[in-house]
Amino acid sequence: MYVDRRVAPPILSVSGFMDPSLPAKPMTRRFFLRVSSATLLAAPLFQPLPALAGTWRFFDETEAATIVALCERIVPADEDPGATWAGVVQFIDRKLTGYYHRYQQLYRLGLQGVHQSSLALFGKAFVDLSGVQQDDLLRKLESNQAPGNIWKQVSATEFFDRLVDHTIQGFYGGPRHGGNRDAVSWRMLGLPTAPVRSRRPLTAPWSTTPNPPTIKL
């Protein structure tokens, strides 16, 4: 079963707790904890992803908007959700401050370059272009023919190749890295999620082999 976070969960009512018309119940510690944690945690946990804007680790708001639009052309939503819904940009953002920090400059300049090219070709920001125009620009990046000074500092093709690869990673990789939300791409392909059994210690509990003694010669 997958939790579909697109549907907002019913708001947990705590009014009964305060309602004077109900018979007074002694407030047990357990009950208090359940109610308070539900109230405190429900809101942030179940907010849909777009509402998390402003919490980017690497991108600023303009950059984030551009990259959302770029990724959505690379894996567009159709009968199945696309890159945005799957959290691909969250994946890229997270990795750029972690394992992919070596690509920070490439993304900074690349996104400026996309803006330049977009203005030069269509006189508008990338996010304001039509889908056809956006694809047109992406093909120009792919073939290294996009206009703009920035592309003299950084290769458009290299930026495009990285962006496509990272988008594919975020969409088709494991959900634990922030992309592929709710295993959406695996569901699209008809794949079950990882049957992870548990976190096992070094010696599996069913094993008849005991952990060997650690010796020092």
Partner: peptide, 26 residues
Amino acid sequence: RLPYQVANMAPLGIPRWGKAHKDYMR
């Protein structure tokens, strides 16, 4: 094959991105 691997195995003529690539995966 993991989905990420298959995503990079597209035969010649299938684009690496866009709806055509998603269709290829499906």
